[in-house]
Design a protein around this nucleic acid. Structure first.
Length: 271
DNA sequence: AAATGAACCTGTTTGC
DNA sequence: TGCAAACAGGTTCATT
C-alpha cells in the first residue's frame, strides 16, 4: 500500500485534478465489505454536500465537505482514479459530482475502508483518535521518540511502524530510514542512544520528504491520481535489495523477518 | 502489558 | 507447461 508519501501524492493529485469546490450528486457503493464495512447511510449522508478540500491525516485521505468529512484508507491496494466509461473488476465505490466528474475507488484486496465523521468531531473519530504525531509535523520530536522507546525490547523497526509512535511510516520507509540512520532494524528500541534516535527522527523526515517530492514510489500498480508513476523506488537503498551490495560499503545486504514483514539491512553500516 | 503471529483478500511471482 | 506455495505497500485481533 501506499505509505505516507504515496497517500500525500494521491491527495495532491486529486486536489489538482478537481476544480474545488464541487457538489456531490451521489455516492454509489458496489461493495460494502471492505476491511471495515462501509457504514449504512454513507451515500445519503454525502449526496448534495459540497466537497471543499482534500486533506490527509496519517495514511487517511480526508474529503472535507460542508458539514461532514469522508474518511478513506487505501489499505494495500486501494486507489482513486478519475472515472471513465469503463468500469473494472474491483471498482467498489463511485463519487459522482454535479459537473459529471466521477471518481472511482478500486481495491482488489479490499484492505481499504471508507467511513465518515462530523467535521467538528473528526479528531475524536475512533479511526483517528489514537494516532501518534505526523512525522513531518512539530510534535514528532526526539523527546517523543525517546519516550516511546524507553524500556522497550521491541525491534526499533516495529516501534517506528506503530501508528501510536509516529504515523505514515510503513515497511519501505521504515527500512530506508533505518539504513540512513545507521541503525539495525532488529535493535531493541530501548537500547538506542538519544543521539542516534535524534538522527533517526531526522532521517525519517528526510526520507519521507524526498519521497513526496518524487511523487511516491511506484511498485506493482500504485499510480498517482493522474495515472503517472512516482519515481522514489529508484532511490531505494535497502528495500527489495537483499543479497545485493550495499550502496555505501559494498557489503551484501541481509534479509530478515520482523513483525511478519520482510526487512533488509546492511550488516556493516547498520548497528 | 508488551510482543508475536495470524487473519483479512486477491493478484502476481517464484519454485518444483 | 502447470500447479502450488510464497509473497505483497496495512491494520487489527487473539494468543503467549
Amino acid at each position: 500500500m501506499p505509505e505516507l508519501p504515496e497517500v500525500e501524492t494521491v491527495r495532491g493529485g486529486l486536489a489538482q485534478l478537481l476544480p474545488l469546490p464541487l457538489t456531490i450528486r451521489s455516492v454509489i457503493i458496489h461493495r460494502r465489505d471492505l476491511r471495515i464495512p462501509v457504514p449504512a447511510g454513507l451515500e445519503e449522508h454525502f449526496a448534495g454536500r459540497q466537497l471543499l478540500a482534500i486533506e490527509r491525516r496519517a495514511k487517511y485521505l480526508l474529503w472535507r465537505c460542508s458539514g461532514a468529512v469522508l474518511i478513506s484508507h487505501l489499505g494495500m491496494t486501494g486507489s482513486w482514479r478519475r472515472g471513465d466509461a469503463v468500469s473494472r473488476r474491483h471498482d467498489h465505490v463511485e463519487v459522482v459530482f454535479t459537473t459529471g466528474e466521477r471518481l472511482v475507488y478500486h481495491d482488489p484486496r479490499r484492505f481499504g475502508l471508507l467511513a465518515f465523521a462530523n467535521d467538528d468531531a473528526l479528531d475524536s473519530h475512533p479511526l483517528l483518535a489514537e494516532l501518534g504525531p505526523e512525522p513531518l509535523g512539530p510534535d514528532f520530536t526526539t523527546d517523543w521518540l525517546a519516550d516511546c522507546c524507553r524500556g522497550s525490547k521491541a525491534p526499533i523497526k516495529n516501534r517506528i511502524m506503530s501508528n501510536a509512535v509516529v504515523v505514515g511510516v510503513g515497511n519501505i520507509y521504515a527500512a530506508e530510514s533505518l539504513f540512513r540512520a545507521g541503525i539495525r532494524p532488529d535493535r531493541a528500541a530501548g537500547r538506542i542512544s538519544r543521539k542516534r534516535l535524534a538522527r533517526l527522527v531526522d532521517c525519517i523526515r528526510k526520507v519521507l520528504t524526498e519521497a513526496i517530492a518524487a511523487g511516491g514510489s511506484t511498485i506493482s500498480d500504485f499510480r498517482q491520481a493522474g495515472g503517472s508513476s512516482g519515481y522514489f523506488q529508484h532511490n531505494f537503498q535497502v528495500y527489495g535489495r537483499q543479497d545485493q551490495p550495499c550502496t555505501t560499503c559494498g557489503a551484501t545486504l541481509r534479509h530478515q523477518t520482523l513483525g511478519g514483514r520482510a526487512t533488509v539491512f546492511c550488516p556493516r553500516c547498520q548497528r
